[in-house]
Design a protein around this nucleic acid. Structure first.
Lengths: 341, 341
DNA sequence: TTGTATGCGTTATCAC
DNA sequence: GTGATAACGCATACAA
């Protein structure tokens, strides 16, 4: 037996489809109390549920949004996802979670799939935003909010959650310099991502402020993942002179570095100070607990979804690109100490 | 400008909708090579993408499946999700990932939402499967595969991935007994879940095999989460006589126990041996690395999706409930040792 | 207050 | 090979 349709309900209640439709969406549309009860009874008995496809085919809205992230296994996204879902559920929206797996191609596939399913908006919380994604969405006028993306468009249903890394990085650098460090490395994310360079430059600026020249800071490329950190440690050890402090583009990389260091018998923080970025849950459970720069992850998720709601509801009005700024802050734990030498 | 429809393409190519539809789904349906190129050109120029809603409204298939899990933040699910997506993508299916947040109500909401979106099947990889969910899906004939669920129905488009905990638990118990332990605790998941009792009973049976009476093994209730493990440690310490070894229902709980123990100055494994279950990625990065029982997580995801494909394609044929068994195995690391006393 | 008719964007069943 | 035309399940303008 196939699922009952609105027609079946109408028959069972002895009314027409439109009447059923009215009690279904019944806001202000007056329908007689008696017939309403008839219809509700029929709905309950048949366990009727409206077909969301048919409905959104005609209303042009699906009460659903897409949420793209790079990797569910990356703990950074967990509070973000949670924050998004909090607001979404409150507002009656379903969220489709899509794992891009750090692949541009995969993300594009999801975006097309989401659009073909008429989602009302898309959240791109992936650290590896592709301009191509945004372009595709903008061209089709789909409300979109992206995390940490430099808008090169100034108009449309677009929003950006910008992260002010500078503040936290400043404090971290001050901390390291005060400890007496003077040879640094930055292990960046993939260098083709704009955000990778932004973090690196903020690091350089903060160091310059303390009269440390760019020449004293090496740059290595990681992949924002744990095993990337492990791997890159080998190359870090080949650096000469050996750096005493490393700033990783994210906590996962930092934890990978620590793990790799331990395997080689190095002691953290005595032989190497490590600073991460994100402050994922793991950061203070690791050993040693990770000194890091905290991003307000739950808030990022919440305000992104909030902003998306605004965009979706300000239907069509040609608005400028929305922007929100969230701040970072420094968290001192035990993966940093004065250099030994 | 709204998204172009099949009609727009037809006009642009100077043909009818039907022809466009043919090249779209073009299997072996003969369409003149010339007109085909005309149509493809128009499609490319308009960047036309078929509306998945309208399509599945008539085909009754959406090429999408729902994937319910308890919590994206629980690392156990990451390889499972990955495995599901591997097979799904291969087969051309999209997956909708839904976070039940360990709440029955939320899961039910998702299931209804998925059904109303005409998903072709549902995967319930949540550790807290509700019979109500399965009933709802079965009643509407939606192909479903559940993890670790005791079927009380014998027919329908249903599949079960059963986990053989016994083997791994046996080995773990043997390991502990050989070390000289004789006073045990089990920190279970929520006791209203059937799977919680199954693990507990398997533990008791394995101990009985070594002539350890049920009286010597205490039972505490956790919640399968890290902080639950931390919390329950307090109650563990109040036990008298103090147990020397604890078997946790999952790794998260075990890691929470270890974290709680460390806070109170206990040393693991000297003061307390801890065995987990799952073997999540974190397990061998923790300190000390966690002795645990490994579940083949990727395989669980892969075979679940594989089974779902089978169910979805064996359309309507009244088949018995499919069942697959995956095995557990013991992994010795460093959170277990001989008791001190 | 309720019913009828039309259309959303597809695929499917016919004719041609 | 190709083009009308009828569904699919629903919402909605309009008529009653």
């Amino acid at each position: 037996m196939p699922r009952p349709t609105i027609q079946d309900v109408a028959r069972a209640a002895g009314v027409s489809k439109s009447t059923v439709s009215r009690v279904l969406n019944g806001v202000e549309d007056y329908v007689d109390a008696n017939t309403r009860r008839q219809v509700e009874k029929a709905i309950a008995e048949l366990e009727y549920r409206p077909n969301a496809l048919a409905r959104s085919l005609i209303t042009k809205r699906s009460l659903a949004v897409g949420l793209l992230i790079s990797d569910v296994a990356n703990a950074f996204y967990h509070p973000v996802i949670h924050g998004v879902e909090q607001i979404a559920i409150e507002a009656g929206y379903d969220t489709f979670l899509c794992n891009t797996n750090y692949e541009v191609e995969r993300g594009l596939h999801f975006i097309r799939s989401l659009m073909s399913k008429n989602v009302d908006g898309v959240l791109i919380m992936s650290s590896s935003v592709s301009d191509e994604w945004i372009a595709e969405l903008a061209r089709h006028n789909v409300p979109t909010v992206a995390l940490d993306w430099k808008p090169n468009i100034s108009e449309g249903p677009l929003g950006v959650i910008a992260v002010d890394f500078a503040a936290g990085i400043q404090q971290a650098v001050e901390h390291l310099v005060n400890l007496g460090h003077c040879r640094f490395v930055h292990v960046a994310g993939p260098l083709n991502l704009p955000t990778s360079l932004l973090r690196y430059e903020a690091f350089l600026r903060a160091l310059a402020w303390h009269d440390i020249p760019a020449a004293d800071v090496a740059l290595l490329e990681g992949n924002l993942q744990f095993e990337g950190g492990q791997r890159v440690l080998t190359r870090l050890l080949e650096l000469s002179p050996r750096p005493t402090a490393v700033f990783a583009a994210n906590d996962l990389t930092a934890l990978g570095l620590i793990s790799g260091a331990r395997e080689r018998g190095l002691r953290i923080p005595d032989d190497l100070s490590v600073v991460g970025l994100d402050d994922i849950a793991l950061a203070d459970q690791s050993s040693p607990p990770l000194t890091t720069i905290r991003l307000p992850k739950l808030e990022i998720g919440r305000s992104a979804m909030q902003m998306l709601l605004t965009l979706m509801h300000s239907d069509g009005a040609a608005c400028p690109v929305h922007e929100a700024l969230v701040k970072s802050s420094f968290v001192e734990r035990q993966s940093t100490a004065a250099p030994r030498s």
